[in-house]
Design a protein around this nucleic acid. Structure first.
Lengths: 197, 197
DNA sequence: CTGCAAAACTAACACTTATTAGTAGGTTTT
DNA sequence: AAAACCTACTAATAAGTGTTAGTTTTGCAG
C-alpha cells in the first residue's frame, strides 16, 4: 500500500527538512554537513538518502515552500479591495508573522538561497524579483492615490523586507517584548514612515 | 629597514583582504575556498600564507575593522550636542554611506560574523550588543525629550540596522536610483517613522 | 510465522578542504 | 659581492565533503 509508505516517508522527510532548516539558519548551508544533519536527526548520514535525493534538494524545498506562501498572500492582497496602505500593512504583517512563527525556514529562504543551483537558482531569483516588483506596484498605487508619501517605491520595498529580517535579532534576544508588541511597533514605525502626511 | 618590508607586506595583505571580502559577500565565508581566493589574487593558495596567518584571520580583520568604524562614529554622536533625532539621523546616514561605499566589507561583517571562532566570536557579539544598546539609549533619550514617538527602542534599532542592509539589493539592481536619492528616501521613511507627530 | 519492502547500518568512493614543509628565485641590506 | 630577506612555487598531509553500494535490521501484511 503506497499510502502508508508515503506517509512514513514524508513524515520522516519533514523531520529532516525541519532539522535542516534549523541548522542552515544557525550555521549556514555550506557550513552544515550531511553528517551534522544526520546526527541531529538521530541517524547515520547515508540513511538520509532513503528520504531525500540530495543536500541541494533540501534547500530547494525550504526556499520554494516559503516563496510560495508569500506569493500566495501577495496575490490575495492584489485582488482585495482595501486601500493601498492597508494592503501594504497587511503584507508587512504577514511577513512579520511568518518571521515569528516560521522563523527557521523563512530565514533560510531569505539568506541561503544563493546556494541554490540552476535551474532552481534562476527560478528563485525571478520569483523574488517579481514579488518585489508587484509589491512596489501596490505602493505606487498608494502614492498615486496620495495615501502614501512620494518616495521611491523600490526603496520602500527594500526597507520593509529587510527590516522584517531584523526579527532574527528579536528571536535571539533574552528580554523579548511580546510578539504582539513587536508587530505593533514595527507596523507603527514602518507604516507611519510611508503614510502621506 | 622594516618599513619597506611592512609596506610591501601590508599592501599585498590588503589586496588579499579586499578580494576576500568580495568573495565572502558573493558566496559566503564557508563556500569560499582558499583556492578560490588565491585564484582571484593571482597566486597559488599556499602563497597566501606568506601574508596572512589563516582564513579565519581574514574574516577577523574584516569584521573588526568595520565594527571599529561604527563604534567610533557612535561615540562621536554620543558626545555631540545635537538633538537626539539628529543624532539618530546622522548614525543612519553613516550606516547608509558605509553600506554604499564600503559595501563588501560591511556586508561581510554583518552577515558572516557567525563564522568567527572564539575568542573573536564572543568579542564581536559583545561589541555588537553594546553598539545596539547604546544606539537604543540615544533613541530613548529622544523619546524622553518627546522628539521621537513612544516606541520600543530596541525594535527601532533592529529596524534601522536591518533596513540599511537592504542596500545590498540596491547594489545588485540594474536601474539604480542615485546614491543620494537612495539615502534621502531611506532617511525620509525611517526618520519620519520615528519622529513624534 | 513467513515474506517483503522500507529504512537503517558499515564501508568505501572520489574530491575538496585548510594548512605545512621544503625550496628556488629575486630583491634589499650589509 | 655576500648575507638576509621576502615571496612565490610544488608537493604533501590529514581531515572532511556529498554520495553510492551492499548488507543487515526492522516492522508490518498475509
Amino acid at each position: 500500500m503506497p499510502a502508508i509508505k508515503t506517509n512514513r516517508n514524508s513524515s520522516k522527510k519533514e523531520v529532516i527538512i525541519s532539522k535542516a532548516a534549523k541548522l542552515f539558519r544557525e550555521k549556514g548551508f555550506s557550513a552544515t554537513s550531511m553528517r551534522d544533519l544526520a546526527e541531529n536527526v538521530g541517524v547515520e548520514a547515508a540513511s538520509l538518502y532513503n528520504h531525500i535525493r540530495s543536500k541541494a534538494e533540501i534547500l530547494q524545498e525550504i526556499c520554494f515552500r516559503v516563496a510560495n506562501q508569500f506569493m500566495t498572500h501577495l496575490e490575495e492582497m492584489e485582488n482585495s479591495k482595501q486601500s493601498s496602505i492597508a494592503k501594504v500593512q497587511s503584507i508587512l504583517q504577514f511577513h512579520i508573522r511568518q518571521m515569528i512563527h516560521n522563523y527557521e525556514a523563512v530565514h533560510v529562504a531569505d539568506r541561503e538561497w544563493k546556494h541554490l543551483t540552476d535551474p532552481y537558482l534562476s527560478n528563485f531569483k525571478t520569483q523574488r524579483k517579481t514579488y518585489r516588483q508587484r509589491l512596489a506596484g501596490i505602493i505606487e498605487q498608494g502614492i498615486a492615490k496620495k495615501e502614501i508619501k512620494k518616495i521611491d517605491a523600490p526603496t520602500a520595498v527594500l526597507i520593509m523586507l529587510h527590516a522584517v529580517s531584523g526579527i532574527e535579532s528579536w528571536h535571539r534576544s533574552k528580554q523579548k517584548i511580546s510578539a504582539e508588541q513587536l508587530e505593533e511597533n514595527m507596523v507603527i514605525i514602518l507604516v507611519e514612515g510611508l503614510r502621506a502626511g
